[in-house]
Design a protein around this nucleic acid. Structure first.
Length: 625
DNA sequence: GAGTTTGAAACT
DNA sequence: CAGTTTCAAACTC
């Protein structure tokens, strides 16, 4: 291939000699300027990624090995996996400049490109390469200033640039998402431009405090920014607005659209292209929707989704949702992560097994670790709903201690096939188990997320026989919701609401012995009862969650994850752009278990009675097909 | 840490 | 649909 280029006809060379030649000279000049620019130097000085001076060859367009211009060891594996995917999309008949090729091409080998062949694929924006340089120069100061401010505000986030640069270099490699061949120079420029624009967009859109400082924790956006390069394109295409986000089939199309729309409104994807969406976490309490800068691990995931899909929904679901030990940005179900400091365990599908003991110890150490559940499957290959990861729609990750795990990106086909099979049996199999309603969201005060009610219901109800619905064996209890008439439990003593509470409630009405009237329970959930005096109260300082029943028509979001993490409330503040004035995007990590229950909001009782009494007892989650 | 209990998921 | 088996998390010691 490369040789063929070298042996290109004299005519082609002559093409290079003519007007193209001057253009190419400008390009070469632009590259040189670019490499000498302050930002470039700045980036280089911050990043372990070592720029390799390209070998100068006669043909300025001969980027023998673009990918090798940067080397980023910690992203290598990620690239590898993605490139595999990308590779399959590419036309094998055309030359490629992916890192795959790079690995096999002598970087010193000059390459010539037939410009005539490629011109039609050139981005018109790059007809004037110097434009890019100007563009670059124009924004570099902004980026640098903003980023320096960001870095100044949070020195811990120096690695933001690290990741940013890694992304930039990544883009260099992964450019050309439209399967067209893009000549190396164009790809290079385009990549740089994208990286710059991306960076600037990130910086520009960072929530800021009045004094202009980037809000706490937001610097990490840079670091955790999505690693998938082509999300932005989808957003720009507008495909997001009409593409459902849900992988599960539980939500209605309209709901899905609404989610997508809302996400767009919140600029989540614009700001954070490539966010991983946790399927089970799209709809939970607002307080679950927050940026978390964990001290300990949260589970980073690569969401399960088809790789070959072209639409936003699938790409979104395919994206990484991310984790890292000390730095997880989690917006509800949205995970972002900087993998750059990880060992690439996810990308290659290989997982460093953590012993169950270690894992348990981790989980037992409290903090966020406790809330970040990983699986420990031994026989299911993590391809059954037994597996929490699989059930949650995410790939297993490093902290999992599973054996013979197939729930990895490298087994994507298997995973998807299995998912499909399971969904064919039960379309709601991957739907969240605990359904939260818009009611619960709307009753949240705009900024008071600590009062999130658990207006939720287990979608199918539990079947407990011995635990009395007082242990986490019970999915209702585990989800922090009361049992309902849907439950077939025996001897229900669910602290969040007993199945047989209806009668007790009536008694309570009479003798007023109940400590918590839990008005919403009373009215919405005839079968659920608030805690009475002396009843078991899992979280003594908190009132039991209220439950409400979503109306189908108003059902906007899929329910929260079945397992809610305990440390949501007091974690980092939610950025204002995500709060969005009561935006219904309230998601939480699927791997989180709610322990702290929300305070019941006072003063809602009477009105809620009127509103909710007519609401069906339980929503059907059946897709509206 | 090992063993037991539990109930969901899977299977028949 | 019901009964049984399998499974992995939750729990206990």
């Amino acid at each position: 291939m490369m040789e063929e280029g070298c042996e290109s006809s004299r005519g082609e060379r002559e093409i290079m000699e003519t007007p193209e030649r001057s253009k190419n000279s400008r390009i070469a000049s632009s590259i040189a300027k670019f490499e000498d620019s302050p930002v470039f130097n700045f980036l280089n000085s911050l990043s372990p990624i070592k720029p390799v001076k390209p070998v100068h060859i006669s043909n300025p367009l001969s980027f023998a090995s673009l990918p090798s211009v940067f080397s980023s060891p910690h992203l290598a594996s990620l690239r590898e996996s993605r490139l595999l995917r990308r590779h399959s999309l590419s036309d094998p008949s055309k030359p490629e400049f992916s890192s795959d090729d790079a690995s096999s091409v002598d970087p010193n080998t000059p390459v010539s490109i037939n410009l005539d062949e490629q011109r039609e694929n050139l981005d018109p924006n790059f007809d004037e390469p110097s434009k890019l340089v100007v563009e670059f120069a124009n924004c570099e100061s902004n980026i640098e200033n903003s980023s320096l401010r960001c870095l100044k505000a949070n020195t811990d986030n120096v690695n933001s640039w690290d990741s940013l640069i890694a992304d930039a270099s990544d883009l260099l490699i992964l450019e050309s998402p439209n399967n067209k061949f893009v000549d190396p120079a164009t790809a290079f420029y385009r990549s740089i431009r994208n990286a710059i624009q991306n960076a600037q967009s990130l910086v520009d859109n960072m929530p800021r405090q009045p004094d202009g400082q980037i809000e706490k924790g937001d610097a990490s956006f840079l670091r955790r920014r999505c690693l998938v390069y082509d999300q932005r394109k989808h957003m720009e295409d507008g495909s997001a607005s009409d593409s459902p986000l849900l992988l599960t089939s539980g939500g209605s199309a309209s709901s899905d659209k609404q989610i997508a729309r809302t996400m767009t409104e919140n600029d989540c994807y614009r700001l954070l292209p490539g966010i991983g969406l946790h399927l089970n976490a799209l709809a939970t309490t607002p307080k679950d929707l927050k940026i978390v800068n964990h001290e300990s691990s949260a589970s980073g995931r690569l969401l399960i989704g088809p790789s070959s899909s072209a639409n936003f929904r699938e790409d979104l679901l395919r994206n990484y949702s991310l984790e890292r030990e000390n730095d997880t940005l989690e917006i509800g179900g949205l995970f972002m992560e900087d993998h750059s400091r990880e060992s690439g365990h996810m990308a290659n599908g290989e997982i460093n097994p953590v012993s169950p003991k270690k894992r348990r110890r981790r989980l037992e150490q409290g903090g966020d670790g406790e809330s970040c559940k990983r699986c420990n499957c031994k026989k299911s290959k993590c391809l059954k709903l037994y597996c929490e990861c699989f059930a949650a729609g995410v790939y297993c990750v490093e902290p999992c201690a599973c054996i013979d795990c197939f729930n990895k990106p490298i087994h994507e086909d298997t995973v998807l096939a299995t998912r499909k099979q399971i969904e064919s049996r039960n379309p709601l199999a991957f739907a969240p188990k605990v359904i939260r309603t818009p009611e619960s969201l709307s009753e949240i005060g705009g900024d008071d997320f600590t009062n999130t009610p658990a207006s939720s219901r287990h979608k199918r109800g539990c079947n407990c026989k011995k635990s009395g619905c007082l242990k986490k064996y019970c999915e209702c209890y585990q989800g922090g919701v009361g049992c309902s008439i849907n439950c077939r439990c025996e001897g229900c003593k669910n602290a969040f609401g007993r199945k047989d509470a209806e009668h007790e409630h009536e008694e309570d009405e009479n003798d007023n012995r109940s400590l918590y009237k839990a008005p919403i329970h009373d009215d919405l959930e005839p079968c659920a009862t608030p805690l009475g005096v002396g009843s078991q109260q899992p979280y003594e300082s908190k009132r039991p969650p209220r439950a409400s029943f979503p109306s189908i028509s108003s059902y906007v979001f899929p329910p929260p994850p079945p397992k809610l993490r305990p440390h949501c409330e007091e974690e980092d503040e939610m950025p204002h752009f995500l709060v969005g004035g009561g935006s219904p995007i309230k998601a939480s990590s699927p791997n989180r278990k709610r322990v702290s229950l929300p305070q019941t909001m006072p003063g809602l009782r009477s009105s809620r009675k009127l509103i909710l009494q007519s609401i069906p007892s339980f929503p059907s989650l059946a897709p509206n097909h």
